[in-house]
Amino acid sequence: MATELPTRTTNGERMPLNAAGEDNFTVKTGLARMLKGGVIMDVVNAEQARIAEEAGAVAVMALERVPADIRAEGGVSRMSDPKMIREIMATVTIPVMAKARIGHFVECQILEAIGVDYIDESEVLTPADHAHHVEKHPFSVPFVCGCRNLGEALRRISEGAAMIRTKGEAGTGDVVEAVRHMRTVSAEINAASRMSDMELRVLAKEIQAPYDLLKETAKLGRLPVVNFAAGGVATPADAALMMQLGCDGVFVGSGIFKSGDASKRAKAIVQAVTHYNDPKVLAEVSEDLGEAMVGLNVASMDAKDKMQGRGW
């Protein structure tokens, strides 16, 4: 099957070395593979982290405010307090991820020093650099980054991201943008798969992606790293939709702890991601979940209010 992620990890033709002089990309992508078929949940304190763990989350994302609150409150949004992240790490046994601002490599150094298991260089926080993303290969800790299209995904992988997610539109509860980004990436890969090497060189220039990585992706028929859905997933059906569109797993941000019964909804979304192809199970777990998060309609939002445009 062309859509399988091969067991040997490659990053185009290059396998850059870390500071210790070893290629650790296999180990970085290895953890992402272990998270596949699972749900990663945004949490703002240790108590929420425990609820997520009990619901069957494969990891938690520690952050100070969920995207819906960041959106409502405004201001500059930064890396969380290391103390809060440490408390969460001490409370759960599943991997703990944390967000750093785009381009803010010192926040990444701090998160690595604390010992988080994954860093999300995230557009949900206020970008710290107008042009550059963090050079991620030299870090020992692996990175996940968001994308809206194939070019953006491959630029991030080239910088060292060991895992990709759709950007979607965080904090809205509207899945339309996550769907748009996943469909865009898939359509671009399908088109690239039918191209000759000469045509791929032109495409690489157009989408500003490294040729080697683009060629590898075209050959595989999918992104060469694990790819999760994120940004607007609020229901079990949303999660299963993203899985059926070809995502390897799902991030849920505001969708859980901004809903009526967080624990029940979290469990339901976990089951939905495992049984994404079984509508009977999806119907069962979708029953009686209480209030979903209120949600913002992305179609009626101003461009300046959208987070997905952050990142270069």
């Binding site: 272990m34 078929g37 699972g38 763990e53 619901a55 989350a57 494969v58 990891a59 976990v270 089951q271």
Partner: peptide
């Protein structure tokens, strides 16, 4: 397979 043992165990229990 490999994965998160807590997640696999909880999903197995609930289904």
């Amino acid at each position: 397979p490999g994965g998160e043992s807590t997640a696999i165990s909880l999903v197995a229990q609930r289904c």
